[in-house]
Nucleic acid binder design. Structure first.
Lengths: 133, 133
DNA sequence: ATAAAAATAGGAATTATTCCTATTTTAAGG
DNA sequence: CCTTAAAATAGGAATAATTCCTATTTTTAT
């Protein structure tokens, strides 16, 4: 594993400090607050690299910018399609079996980095019911 | 269930015609090609509504705009964090059990609309190995 | 020590998404 | 069938998010 550049560490540290799924913009802000030289391009590049390296994952919602979260303990995200609320949860997915199944279907021995669930939360379910959407 | 507006159907039809995970822009293009009056705002609004209604799902990658796919048969998506390649796959997730687990953890009886996997495909794994990233 | 490869700064350029207002359409009630 | 309120839309401006570009710096490999 190649050593992280100063800037990549700055990005990772910013996420650690921010907590609660910051956006790229918020991360860039924190990075600058910490007097890192990292430019916006560098932040985006390193967010991608950190995702590839499984240090962080990206959380995408139906609205607003993408968000990022540390991979510090094994948890996943369930994201409401309607209101965008993100629920952290733990679950023991049978990763090995899923990987085998994928191997069979696509012929590749991929690595599984993350699961995410798109859901409808109670509040939104009720509201949609009421509005008959 | 409220009837779909003409425009919402136009958006859904555009996705059906396009196949292969079109972007909002591509969908808007197709919608216009089909002489729908739908504006861009309408396309985005209805993409969200169609996701909430489980007619389509959104696919988010590490780069490029979000993409959409029909929920026509039960399949999920595994997305390479590095190259963005999307693999369709079928898997029998134990939805009921996952839902129960979520109920216990977050106290809500959410609906699960979709699963998605963030992965590293073989090609990218090898390239990263080679480059020691 | 040196050359090649990779990463960065700085910010411009582009692209994606949201938002706004006036208008039109739909739903509900009498 | 009217009437009114709520919801959805058109059109496009405004905003926000992301990518891209060039010159420079840093790292890696030899």
């Amino acid at each position: 594993m190649r050593n992280y550049s100063k800037q990549r560490e700055d990005v990772l540290n910013a996420i650690k400090e921010l907590k609660n799924h910051p956006t790229a913009e918020e991360i860039y802000g924190k990075v600058k607050e910490n007097n890192s030289t990292a430019s916006k391009g560098t932040v985006y590049r390193n967010l991608k690299n950190l995702v590839i390296d499984k240090k962080i994952i990206k959380i995408s919602k139906m609205e607003g910018p993408d968000r990022y979260d540390l991979v510090n303990y094994p948890h996943y995200h369930a994201i409401c399609a309607s209101c965008g609320k993100v629920f952290d949860f733990v679950y023991d997915f049978d990763v090995e079996n899923i990987r085998k199944s994928l191997k069979k279907q696509i012929g590749e021995n991929i690595d599984i980095n993350d699961f995410s669930l798109q859901i409808l939360c109670d509040k939104c379910k009720n509201k949609l019911q009421k509005n008959k959407i």
